[in-house]
């Protein structure tokens, strides 16, 4: 019977750690384990993560400006433009009007908008839409690279964008290959690990943390620098523990849950710290998108949490994490004993 109940494994783990949970039996209704239905919910999680990420960046591109200045305003770019036959004034504008660069930096927002829409409508087999989403990942890669260069080439700046960069690819793989496919789960793990490792490098002070880290901690919690520093160090250690714990079966769900919660907290910290009733629109136009575009930091760990929560077949339990039997969609009620 135990082999039939994938939910039991964590409970056994808890027992091993001395946690006593009252024994009881319940019947999991068939609807809860309807795999296609459950898969579609997992897909929705991924859709939300990708949609909010693209939507947030769309807002940045249309309402503010994409962070590409560091890449385009430089000699190498001018040389490149000349090579492709665009003269300098045409490339950068005359000063009285916009040039190629300004116009195209503004137009990139349309690509983000299109990607945001596609995250909602894309279906399995929509290869063009999926290719567009992969292209969206490319855009996010360029954007993250620009931020990396702007940060004086600090590797964690690029690494911590891994979650955002991989979010569309994760959605595509989930649609194309299935939510439990090796590639999908590996992509999700990679996205989570890069995000938290990058963040952890800063929080631990391995690279100078962005000033906003201390500032947000101090403002939200009303603590001084030393306390904020201690808290960031602690968070940094936990970031790395999550990166390890996510690979340890007994800890992976807890790690994913913590990661989702921490991803939410760090994302929402921007508007919480910055918004004020005294500002125009309460400062929403300045800060809300900062939380929204970080949606992958929440939804990717949440995806893993629910993926691993799903009652699995005996075959699946015996397999390594992320492996699946097939996507046949066969359903059956399972009676499960929970310790």
């Amino acid at each position: 019977m135990r082999a039939e109940c994938p939910a039991r494994a964590p409970q056994e783990s808890l027992f091993r750690y001395g946690i006593n949970i009252e024994r009881k039996e319940r019947v999991i209704p068939s609807s809860a384990v309807n795999k296609p239905n459950f898969d579609s919910r997992l897909i929705i999680i991924l859709r939300l993560g990708a949609f909010f990420c693209f939507a947030g960046w769309t807002w940045v591109h249309f309402y503010w400006e994409g962070p590409y200045g560091i890449l385009v305003w430089q000699d190498a770019t001018y040389v490149f433009a000349e090579r492709i036959g665009i003269d300098w004034e045409e490339f950068v504008g005359s000063g009285a009007d916009d040039g190629f660069v300004q116009k195209w930096v503004a137009r990139i927002g349309w690509f983000y908008l299109i990607c945001a829409v596609i995250t909602v409508i894309v279906r399995k087999g929509s290869w063009i839409q999926m290719a567009a989403l992969v292209g969206g990942s490319g855009l996010l890669t360029i954007l993250s690279y620009a931020k990396y260069v702007a940060s004086q080439r600090q590797p964690p700046m690029f690494i911590e964008h891994g979650g955002q960069i991989l979010m569309p690819i994760l959605l595509v793989t989930a649609l194309a290959l299935g939510v439990r496919h090796r590639v999908t789960v590996t992509t999700a793990l990679l996205a989570l690990v890069t995000t938290f490792a990058g963040h952890g490098c800063y929080a631990l002070g391995l690279w100078p943390p962005p000033a906003t880290f201390h500032a947000m901690t101090s403002v939200i919690l009303d603590v001084g620098y030393d306390t904020a520093n201690t808290m960031l160090h602690t968070a940094g250690i936990l970031d790395f523990l999550v990166c390890i714990g996510i690979f340890l079966p007994p800890l992976r769900r807890m790690s994913a849950l913590y990661a989702a919660a921490w991803g939410f907290v760090t994302a929402i910290a921007r508007p919480v710290a910055g918004m004020s009733l005294s500002l125009n629109y309460w400062g929403a136009d300045q800060f809300v998108h900062e939380a929204v575009l970080r949606a992958p930091h929440v939804f990717i760990p949440l995806f893993l949490f629910f993926l691993w929560r799903e009652p699995q077949s005996a075959e699946n339990v015996a397999r390594p994490p992320g492996l699946t039997s097939d996507d046949s969609g066969t359903t059956r009620p399972i009676t499960c004993t929970i310790d």
Partner: peptide, 9 residues
């Protein structure tokens, strides 16, 4: 009026 290395008005 112009900011940056390339005609950013």
């Amino acid at each position: 009026h112009i900011h940056g290395s390339a005609n950013g008005r």
